[in-house]
Simulated scan of single mutants.
Amino acid sequence: MTGRIDVHQHMIPEPYARRLRSHGVDAPGGRPLPAWSPAEAVEMMDRQGIATAIVSLTTPGAYLGDGADAASVARQANEYGAELAAARPGRFGFFATLTLPDVGAAIAEAGHALGGLSADGVILLANSRGVYLGDPAFDPLMGVLDEHAAIVLVHPAELPGPAVDGIPPFAADFLLDTTRAAFNLIKHDVPRRFPRIRFILAHAGGFVPYAAHRLAITIFGETGRDPDQVLADFAGFYFDTALSSSPAALPSLLAFARPGHVLYGSDWPFAPEPAVTYFNTWADDAAINHGNARELFPRLKEAPHA
């Protein structure tokens, strides 16, 4: 079987884990920080038929505390990702971490990562300190990412508001956070103004495929844009299947997304391997598992088989 290409798998380098804990971050998104190593990742990938993983940091990303060390956190993580990809060619790639809401530092790190480090793309949190993707303040970064024809994984963060007792953020808030970012990106016409950026929405786009018509009518009411055009823009995102390839969600996603725009994701290690196995039960489509990713990431067209 041709191995899966996993566009939503996380890395937790030990220096980053120590830095999180030093800032009191022990359970990002409500999930305890799991153990991780490259060797453990490869063992899991072999068991799950994953040929290649494009790894990334997850929330809270580089911006810890007051953000004073964001640039150094991002640089250290990105150089680690580049070393990991170079040490295991074909098995790993990486999405670079940037420094939003610090736009200037994010632009500098994007140039370094996409140029000097040959990152496969970048990961951006849906909101950075309460400012959502699509906000005009981020347009200078979008311009740079457009110049690089960058792939951007949009990953949820904790909502800019109090959590609800008994409902961990990863369970429901993450889906809303991604949906908010997608709405704001479309409302501010980012995909059309910066057409070379390819956005991947994590977790099947949160609520986007199921609420798209409602979202489109709302944007029509606020902007006057043709609802059909707005719907086409929503469907033009890429979507990963992390924790989302259930028999209820996957058909809805495939009915909504543009053909070729659904990609495999595991969300390991924050999704424990039993959860990966569970959702892989329904992730048996060759295009989703590897074909669509090979088209999106040309360097992976000759990726090894598992």
Score class of each variant (00 low, 15 high):
191 P>N: 02
57 L>K: 01
217 I>Y: 12
144 V>P: 00
61 G>H: 08
114 L>H: 00
68 A>S: 15
143 G>W: 01
289 N>S: 15
293 A>G: 08
1 M>L: 13
215 L>F: 05
301 K>E: 02
193 R>K: 14
195 P>T: 14
81 G>S: 12
172 A>T: 06
123 I>R: 09
294 R>A: 11
60 P>E: 00
188 H>V: 04
80 Y>A: 12
114 L>C: 00
155 H>V: 01
103 V>H: 10
87 A>C: 03
176 L>E: 00
40 E>Q: 14
91 R>G: 10
225 R>S: 09
128 S>P: 10
271 A>D: 06
20 L>D: 07
281 T>M: 02
83 E>F: 02
142 M>T: 06
68 A>P: 02
135 D>S: 15
260 G>A: 05
211 A>N: 03
140 P>G: 10
182 A>C: 05
82 A>F: 10
225 R>T: 03
284 D>H: 14
226 D>V: 01
170 F>W: 12
99 T>H: 04
268 W>H: 12
218 T>Q: 13
268 W>Q: 04
216 A>M: 11
140 P>L: 07
150 A>I: 13
192 R>T: 13
147 E>M: 01
66 D>S: 09
195 P>S: 10
26 D>R: 15
112 H>P: 01
180 R>F: 10
185 L>Y: 05
69 D>G: 11
106 A>T: 05
169 P>T: 08
64 L>F: 00
157 A>F: 06
247 P>R: 13
105 A>P: 01
34 P>R: 07
3 G>E: 05
259 P>F: 05
275 A>D: 12
183 F>R: 03
22 S>K: 13
231 L>H: 04
276 V>E: 07
180 R>W: 02
41 A>E: 15
164 V>M: 13
203 H>M: 07
235 A>P: 06
69 D>E: 15
95 F>E: 08
210 Y>W: 12
54 I>F: 09
216 A>H: 09
219 I>R: 10
124 L>R: 10
1 M>S: 12
161 G>E: 14
16 Y>V: 09
69 D>L: 13
262 V>F: 04
262 V>R: 07
298 P>L: 00
275 A>M: 15
108 A>S: 13
214 R>A: 00
141 L>V: 06
100 L>V: 04
90 G>C: 01
159 L>T: 04
36 W>M: 02
103 V>A: 07
293 A>D: 06
79 E>Q: 15
277 T>D: 07
131 V>R: 15
208 V>N: 02
39 A>F: 05
289 N>M: 15
102 D>C: 04
250 L>C: 06
156 P>C: 07
98 L>T: 11
141 L>R: 11
132 Y>C: 01
276 V>M: 10
24 G>S: 12
40 E>T: 11
162 P>S: 14
43 E>D: 15
292 N>I: 06
89 P>Q: 06
291 G>Y: 11
305 H>T: 09
103 V>I: 14
42 V>Y: 03
28 P>Y: 15
259 P>K: 06
148 H>Y: 15
249 A>Q: 13
